[in-house]
Amino acid sequence: MSSTATPSRTAAPVSARRAQTRERLMAAATTVFAERGVNGASVEEVCETAGFTRGAFYSNFADKDELVLALIQADVAAQYAAAASALEEAECALGTSTVATVVASTLERFDAFGATTREGVLAQRELLLHAARVPALHGPYRDFLATSSAQLRTLLADALERVGLEFTLPVDLAVEMLLATHARVQNQALFDEGVDTTAMQAVVLAITRPRPDGRAGAGMGGGPATRSA
Rank of each mutant, 00 (worst) to 15 (best):
S2I: 08
T4Q: 06
T6P: 01
S8D: 09
R9Y: 02
A12T: 10
S15A: 10
R17Q: 12
E23K: 13
L25F: 15
M26T: 14
A28C: 10
A28R: 10
E35F: 05
E35C: 06
E35M: 07
G37R: 10
N39C: 06
N39P: 03
E45V: 07
V46F: 14
V46T: 13
E48A: 15
A56V: 03
Y58G: 01
Y58W: 04
A62E: 14
E66N: 06
E66H: 15
A74G: 09
A78V: 04
Q79R: 11
Q79G: 05
A83P: 00
A83N: 13
A83Y: 01
L87R: 13
E88G: 07
A93V: 03
A93C: 07
S97P: 00
V99E: 01
S105V: 00
S105C: 05
T106E: 00
L107R: 05
F110P: 00
F110V: 15
F110D: 01
F113N: 04
T116I: 15
T117N: 07
V121S: 02
A131F: 12
A131Y: 10
R133S: 15
H138A: 15
L145I: 13
L145S: 08
A146M: 06
S149D: 14
A150P: 01
L155S: 08
A157I: 08
D158P: 01
L165C: 13
F167I: 01
P170E: 05
L173C: 03
M177Y: 10
V185P: 00
Q186S: 13
Q186H: 07
N187E: 14
Q188S: 11
A189E: 09
L190Y: 07
F191Q: 09
D192L: 12
D192A: 14
E193A: 14
V195L: 05
D196N: 14
A199E: 03
M200E: 00
M200C: 07
Q201N: 03
A202Y: 02
I207T: 04
R209V: 07
R211S: 02
M220Y: 10
M220T: 03
G222T: 10
P224H: 02
P224F: 01
A225K: 01
S228W: 04
